[in-house]
Structure formats: C-alpha cells, structure tokens
Design a protein around this nucleic acid. Structure first.
Lengths: 370, 370
DNA sequence: TTCCCCGCTGAATCTTTGA
DNA sequence: GTCAAAGATTCAGCGGGGA
C-alpha cells in the first residue's frame, strides 16, 4: 500500500481497495485530494419476471440486492448523498465520470447539476455487440450513457485533446464511442466459472476515459469499484487509484486482478480502432433521407420487372413482398439477388441504379471522416 | 381545418397550427384524445440569462450557486407543467417522445419518470455531420438524446417492430440512430435567406419515430411545433397532427410548408407487420379443412421427436398429450414452445412446416377481406 | 495447423388473449 | 380482477471441438 502525504498531515490510501459503504469511506478521506472520480453506481433496474431467449435459454438478469431500491425517492437520496461525498473529495480542478442507463442516468444527471457539478459532455457508449431485444417489444438497448462533469463551472479540468484525437486516427474524438462489451478472457470468472460480477465494464472504455481526462500520477477514485476495471486501467496508464467496494467477494477478485496488472500493457487495450470494411448502409436510409419516395416504382436493370416502394423500405411486386434483395430474387426465380445492383429508378427520365444513392451516402460518410 | 368528433361533444383541431402558450392550449383540448406526442422543448440555455419563464418574463442572469439552483428550479417547473398538460391529453395507450441535449435532457427524463411516464427506450441521434468543437476543449458534441416513454407502465404502446426492422435491412432497430442533421434544401429559409429556425429537426428523424410508434390515422401532437417537421412527416405518412407554436413567424413558415406536403399513397404506407398482428388460426382448423388427417405423425423440426395427431387437434407423444405447444415444450424440456414452427409433416416425402398451412389459411382470409 | 460449425452469453424495466 | 394457455421472439462475438 502506497500512501501520499498531503500538507504533511493526512495520507491517501493509494492503490488499494477499501471495504465498506462508499459514503462513509469517502467522508473519512481528506477533502480536495482526488483528481478524478469514475463512478458506476447501481442502475436501479426494475425487472419483473424471467426473460427467455427465443431458443428458450434463460437470460441471467441483474437481480442482485445492491441494485434494488424501494422508490425513485430512495434512489435519489442515495445519489445525492454519494455525489456530495464525492464532490468534497475532488480537487478544485477535479472532474467526475458517471455511467448509467435510462433507468437511472436522468436522475443522476439532474442530481449532478443540482450539486453544482458542471456538465462538460454526455458520452454515449455504443455497444458493438449488445444483447438483442428478444421479444421484439422495444428497440435494442444498444448503448449506455456517461456524463463527464467538472467539479464546478470554474474548474480547469484536464482534457488531453491530442491524445484522444490520436486514439481516433487523427479525427477529433466525438461524444459517441463504439466499443464492444466485456466478454471473452477479459471477463473475470469466479471459482465456479460463472461471471464474477454482473456488470463488469470493458477496459477499453476506462482506457479512453483515463487517457483523455487524467495525467500520469493523477489520483483516480472509484466508489463502486466492483472487479476493479478502473484500478487496473489506471495502473496500466501510470495513474494512482483508490477503490471502494462493499462486497468482499468483489474486492477479492479485484485484488487478485490488480496483483498481476502491468503498467503500459497497451497491446491488450487497443482493440477498438481496427479498420472497418465499407460501412453498411441500410436501404431504408434512402427513404428516410428523401432520396427515394414511398410509392415510387423501382425497375429491374434488365427491364423485366418492377416493384413499388413502401415507407418501411420494403418492396411490393407481383405476389411478393420483402427487402430489395428478397423481391429481386423471387422475381428472377433465383436463390439470391443483390438488390443494390438489381434495381434502378427513373430520374429525369433516365434509369439510375439505386446503388448510386448508397455510394452517395458512403461518400458523405468518408468525407466527414477526413 | 379538419375536426374530429369525440363522443359527439368535443372536437379536435386536426392538421392545424395553433398559436399561444402550449400549456394553455393543451389544457383547452379534450382529455385522452391524442395517440402520440413529439416534443422538442427549449434546451435551457444554461444560466446565461436566456431562460424564459412560461409567462415570457426573463430570468435574471446569475453566476453563483444559489441562483443557479433557482434557475434549474424554474426550468423544472416549466417542464413539469407542460408534461402534466401533455399527459392529460394522451389516450391510455399513448406515448411521448422528447428530444434534448445534456443541458436539459436529464431534468426532462427525471420529470417524465416523476410524472408517471414509463421510459421505453432512450434513443441516441448520432449526427453524421455534427459541428466540430473548434476550441478543442471538449469532445465533439455529436449526438442528441430522445426519450420514448409510454403514458404509464401498463400502456399497450404502439411499436411497429417489423417495419423498423425492415428499415434496417432486416436487423432489429437499435437505440442509436445515425442520421444527418437538417441541411441543404430541407433547411427552411426566411425571407432574408437566413435559416428560419435555429433547431429545425431532419425529416428522417421524424420518419423513423412516426413510422415506428404510430399507425396511419393516429393523432400526433407537437407542443413546440417550430417549422412543423412533425406535421409535415405526419401528413406524408398518413397521420393526423396538431401543432402548437407560440411564435407567429414560425407558424407562418410551418403553414406554408404544410400546404405543399404530399401524402404517400396508400399502398406505400402499408408496412411489414409481425405475426402478432395476423389473425389467430386455431390449429384444429387444419384438421377440419382436411389439410392434416387424424392419425398422421408429426415430426419435430430438429428430427428428434415425433407425435401422433388426434381428431381434436391434440398430439400424443412419448408420455405426453396436449396441444402442439404443450407437447413440443414437454419433449424439449423447455418452458414454452411455438408448436407452429416446431412441428412439420411429410408431404411427397419432404418435411413441410405446419406453419405453411396456417399461412395458406391466412392468405385465404385476406383475399376474402378484399 | 487451419477452418468451420455449433453452443453459449450479454445492466433487460421484453406478451396477449380468453375464460 | 386472476389464471392458464397460446404463441412470438435474437445479434455479435468468443471459444471449444471436430474435420
């Protein structure tokens, strides 16, 4: 355990995991001693019954006691209390990150503002591999929200603009981050081979946060430490951490993990910036963007078939409905068909391949990336 | 101006733009008369003296914590008031969309929950062409947030799952939508050639919202109508709208715009539907119609099980009797089973899904209805 | 060794109807 | 109101095992 002397009197328990209630523990630490706080508080999911996948397997839900709150009021009080304790710990130029979902993030965001924090950005973590919506009743919940806020409006917060720009292949980093969820070998298991924690965050996410908004040697506090992703990435990046975790089982996992962390283990982290193939453009976007109009007629390139366009991007031909690919295949009696190159539309009296519109969208996307 | 009689007493001013304060106007409309509300409220331009009270008086500029809190209070009161009026207007199965940025969306989201709305998704509009952050002091603010919520937890909200899935090339629609901001010819100009409204939303955004969460003929209300994007897209998609806008200049622009909107034709507005929307066909009908014969043997799709068909439409398998669903579930040891897609039968030596026969019956029913 | 196929899983506010 | 039964519903990625 490292300690750090502040004004020759108080010390900070650096690079350790503290047990106990995070509010009490925070109140026992010296005021104005922390550069950054990263917090992943309970989301207050309000789950009702069981959920099964279409293949009848059961979804392992987050049903832990620590995520249960009696009411919004109780949750709000909890939020205000830990935010107050957290804000006291921050240095004048300190900042905070909080992550959440629609269940809790609006309440947390409002509480942050009420407590005097100054929101700098909200950041969307777009999951490349989210869990689908199995019952088809809502949109796939494919993102979580992070709020980045300084201690107050006057704070001169840390922002490593160039570092994030480099991380993003020379393009200014945006407020939406596409990163995969934590799976595979990175996902920590308990002695039974089950996941050690229901909501372990990926190191890539913390890497981006800490690289962008702290400097080497900074002190990062995580009041909901869990399996210690914040601490692990902090150590890799040469930052100091303080972890607080109530559950002894999680502390144990975190301590084991931290014991084997090596500083600057970059290779394992840089996974998310790989080159993509040409971006997929859903055909429906051509309608949403007004390039094609519902009700218009598409013609096949060979001139033998036609089909009518609907508002949801499906086609209706002779006795067939479906995607541009399905209808093309059916009309040709073929097993498959590339609708993009099969269909065209009259523009100024001349047939224009619909692929032209896709290329237009891709060109816009590419231009913006430069 | 179209009007719609409700219970023979009250009428709705459909497809018009109403002037005045949105709360007063909403309170003058009949309760439970609207299917969907789309709201793009003021974003609370933070604490710079730009905040107006509902009565149009200006809030003093402030720079200390005490007054900051007071400003948020004013915005919160405004939010609670218009949400209350909006909720009163919704039908029991109605829903609301609200769009905002980090300046206001957390307060709006919390107010929605406090008012009894039930959040269904938060949706991120990921702008493909956002304004860069010129000073390099923060992340490029590249998204806005929409909240989709039903009137209450019990509401049977409208969600056209298959239509949105079609729009997205056959993959279920996610909570992050990549769409360009409103520019070019779509961006309305005033008589001086300047943009007519500072925050005009793209039609593509409303297209997706209205296609996904309303049906043709539904009434859509927009209490902050602006230049009328909601109304324009509603008309194109065969929905009715009610717009409320305080500023006469915006109303004028909106009315001109709406006068030239064309509705897509009827066939283009029919969208892909899920099986849930199809009529229910009792399995016994397949026997009554002679498609299947009592005594025949059904095979499971995976080839592992078989069962014998009885005259009443029940199956008998190894130690199990019951409906096609019950026997399928029992044989697979699963909590449930869709017998329609689980079982097949030999026809001309080949296995044919029993769902094919159901589709035949449904096709006949549809034909007869025309 | 490589490749393919199959099984498993992830912060989830996840059904509808009729008796 | 309750309860039981019908029946609708999934995407990306990892890893293990077999060809």
């Amino acid at each position: 355990m490292t300690t750090k002397t502040k004004k020759g009197v108080e010390t900070l328990p650096l690079n350790t995991v503290l047990g106990g209630d995070c509010i009490e523990v925070m109140n026992g630490l010296p005021e104005g001693s922390v550069d950054l706080i990263f917090a992943d508080p309970p989301y207050n999911l309000q789950l009702r019954g069981d959920l099964h996948r279409p293949d009848n397997s059961q979804v392992d839900a987050v049903d832990d006691a620590w995520d249960q709150f009696a009411s919004f009021e109780v949750y709000d009080r909890f939020t205000r209390d830990w935010l107050k304790a957290a804000r006291r710990l921050l240095k004048p130029n300190g900042a905070i990150w909080v992550i959440g979902s629609y269940h809790n993030i609006f309440r947390v965001g409002a509480a942050l503002q009420d407590a005097g924090f100054w929101i700098l950005n909200d950041v969307v973590w777009r999951k490349s591999n989210p869990m689908p919506n199995f019952r088809g009743k809502r949109l796939t919940n494919a993102h979580e929200t992070l709020i980045w806020a300084s201690r107050d409006e006057a704070a001169k917060y840390t922002f490593n603009y160039e570092a994030l720009k480099s991380l993003n292949e020379g393009i200014q980093m945006r407020s939406d981050w596409v990163l995969p969820i934590c799976t595979g070998h990175e996902r920590l298991k308990d002695e039974h081979g089950d996941k050690a924690h229901p909501t372990q965050k990926p190191e890539s996410l913390l890497h981006r946060v800490l690289l962008g908004t702290t400097n080497p040697g900074d002190v990062v506090l995580d009041p909901f430490f869990g399996t210690g992703t914040t601490g692990a990435v902090a150590r890799m990046l040469g930052r100091e951490f303080i972890g607080i975790e109530r559950e002894a089982a999680y502390r144990k996992v975190a301590e084991k993990r931290l014991a084997s962390v090596r500083k600057y283990d970059r290779a394992a982290l840089e996974v998310s910036t790989s080159k993509r193939a040409e971006p997929r453009v859903p055909f429906g976007q051509l309608i949403e963007r007004g390039m094609l109009r519902p009700g218009e007629e598409l013609l096949s390139m060979n001139g033998r078939h036609k089909a009518k366009l609907r508002a949801d991007g499906t086609l209706v031909g002779d006795d067939v409905k479906g995607s541009i690919h399905q209808v093309g295949a059916a009309l040709e009696g073929a097993p498959s068909c590339n609708g993009w190159t099969y269909w065209c539309i009259k523009r100024d009296g001349k047939p224009v391949s619909i692929d032209v519109f896709r290329q237009q969208i891709r060109a816009e996307m590419a231009e913006r990336a430069n």
